[in-house]
Amino acid sequence: MITKDEVNHIASIAKLKIKDDEISLFTEKFDQVMSFVQKIKEVDTENVEPTYKINDEDGFLKENGESQTLTREEVLRNTVDTQYGYFKILKVVE
């Protein structure tokens, strides 16, 4: 059973906030889903290697590829605030 506290903890790692009036319902649905996936625990996976990549080809390396470098206008066009060619955010308290 997943608790509201756990949900809040996971939310803080994921940089999300579940509103107080939604937390009960969210936790309930979240718990449904998480208990649903617990079924895989019954599978015997001893001596089974994990599959990270589904086809059998090796990864490749890049060499002398075409540059995709953007203009500064393109780099900054979708952000809220800029200054002197930088992205700008309010100073953040560490």
């Binding site: 895989i40 599978v43 996976t45 089974v48 290697e49 990270y52």
Partner: peptide
């Protein structure tokens, strides 16, 4: 665990 079960499915 899921990555291993994935291997079995494959």
């Amino acid at each position: 665990k899921a990555l291993k079960v994935r291997t079995l499915i494959k």
